[in-house]
């Protein structure tokens, strides 16, 4: 698309520029064809976009949200579910540390490490290991090792804020939520599976 045509169609020209361009449009058949093509395509786009909705869906949206809030209230900090989620998340972070951290001590014991990490430290570790795009491969490796969709989704979500350079606002806006999301996205059964899978791995058995 011609840049001048774009500026004209996108209302980025001042009055004089518009007048001059309109004169050009009248005398240049190729430009006129481009303009007509643009108008036709925009018309088509508008047509594709004009669809009728089933209003019932929207009526249910707010009650569903309130239902979710209620169900999340049961996921309290003191519940066993939270404990399991925290354990599994910590285990995932340990995998990060084992493979990509500066320390190469493969004899680290899971139980000991679980006791040693605070929530804030966990959050910091995640930030450290997801601070550039090249970490994607590493995350995928970890996700494959863990082999759990909930964890993959949670870790991928955290990483996504780094893959997209424009996601600073996500971090700023939802920093307090990222931890909650990470734990909240794993259900009790998933957490159990992940936990069991991880402690079976060779490097946790000590050499």
């Amino acid at each position: 698309m011609n840049k001048k045509l774009f500026l004209y169609c996108d209302n980025q020209m001042n009055a004089d520029e518009r007048k001059k361009f309109e004169e050009e449009l009248k005398t240049d058949p190729a430009l006129q064809a481009q303009y007509n093509n643009y108008l036709g395509n925009i018309k088509k786009l508008r047509k594709y976009n004009s669809v009728e909705l089933n209003e019932k869906y929207f009526v249910n949206a707010v009650p569903v949200m309130h239902g979710r809030i209620e169900s999340r209230k049961h996921f309290s900090l003191l519940s066993p579910k939270f404990g399991l989620a925290l354990s599994s998340m910590t285990a995932v972070l340990l995998v990060f540390l084992m493979f990509f951290g500066k320390t190469t001590d493969n004899t680290i014991k899971l139980e000991k490490s679980l006791k040693g990490l605070s929530t804030e430290e966990i959050s910091n570790v995640l930030d450290t290991y997801s601070n550039n795009e090249s970490q994607l491969d590493k995350t995928i490796q970890v996700a494959e090792i863990v082999g759990d969709s909930g964890v993959i989704s949670a870790v991928g979500d955290k990483l996504a804020s780094e893959i997209i350079p424009n996601n600073e606002q996500l971090t700023a806006m939802e920093s307090s939520e990222s931890y909650e999301y990470l734990t909240g996205s794993i259900n009790e059964k998933e957490a159990d599976i992940v936990y069991n899978e991880i402690i079976k791995k060779e490097f946790f058995k000590g050499k």
Binding site: L136, T139, I140, A143, E144, S149, I152, S153, G156, D157, L159, A160, S161, I163, I164, N166, N167, Q169, L170, M173, E174
Partner: peptide, 19 residues
């Protein structure tokens, strides 16, 4: 918008892993 972008990136990872 942020949620959508975040979702699309997550989806890319999930598709890569064939989930």
């Amino acid at each position: 918008s942020t949620r959508c972008l975040n979702y699309l990136s997550r989806q890319k990872v999930r598709r890569f892993l064939s989930l």
